[in-house]
């Protein structure tokens, strides 16, 4: 028994519609589970609230990237054209924030975009080469196609297979199975 428990990743319940999985998620959230997730072929509207997720923190990464980009552009141009090798162009000041703005603007966007994408990868812990669920044929056949899954992991402090099965069956899952880690 103990041996098989260490091998289990969690319980996977399959749902046929977005409404079914959304309502199941609301129930699981209200029972106070913490190590669980919903897997869908596309982002389901309202699922973040049904799962009780907070606003994503990707924005902070993008903001930091953008600020870094802008400062990089301004400081680079100031240092290159006014400090390291001053060049007089058209009798204008050595450094003017207006002429330096367009490249700095582009760097703001470039670094901001890198911040958003890399921040998203970091928060999602991607890329990853292995995931227990991706070994399950039924899961991979449906999760990117037309089925919706709710997974409660064995690591959850409230994990109890019998109770979870009952909860998810009541929520309308037609197929529940245990997935090995």
């Amino acid at each position: 028994m103990n041996h098989s428990r260490t091998q289990t990743y969690g319980l996977v319940a399959e749902f046929a519609t977005t409404a079914a999985v959304l309502h199941a998620a609301e129930k699981v959230r209200d029972r106070g589970f913490t190590h669980w997730d919903v897997f869908t072929p596309f982002p389901v509207h309202g699922m973040d609230r049904a799962m009780g997720l907070r606003n994503s923190r990707v924005g902070w990464f993008a903001f930091l990237g953008g600020v870094t980009g802008y400062l990089t552009g301004m400081l680079m141009i100031w240092w290159m054209n006014a400090v390291d090798y001053p060049i007089i162009v058209g009798g204008k000041p050595m450094f003017s924030p207006f002429a330096a703005f367009p490249p700095s603007y582009e760097l703001t966007i470039l670094f901001g975009a890198f911040g958003a994408v890399l921040g998203m990868f970091f928060l999602n812990r991607l890329p990853r080469l292995h995931h227990p669920l991706l070994k399950n044929r039924r899961f991979t056949g449906g999760v990117t196609h037309d089925k919706f899954y709710l997974v409660i992991e064995r690591d959850d402090p409230k994990y109890s297979e019998a109770e979870i099965r009952k909860l998810l069956e009541e929520s309308g899952s037609a197929h529940i199975e245990r997935v090995e880690a």
């Binding site: 998620a25 919903v38 869908t40």
Partner: peptide
């Protein structure tokens, strides 16, 4: 990249 469709 190991995308699973997780809602998180």
């Amino acid at each position: 990249l190991g995308w699973t469709g997780s809602n998180r």
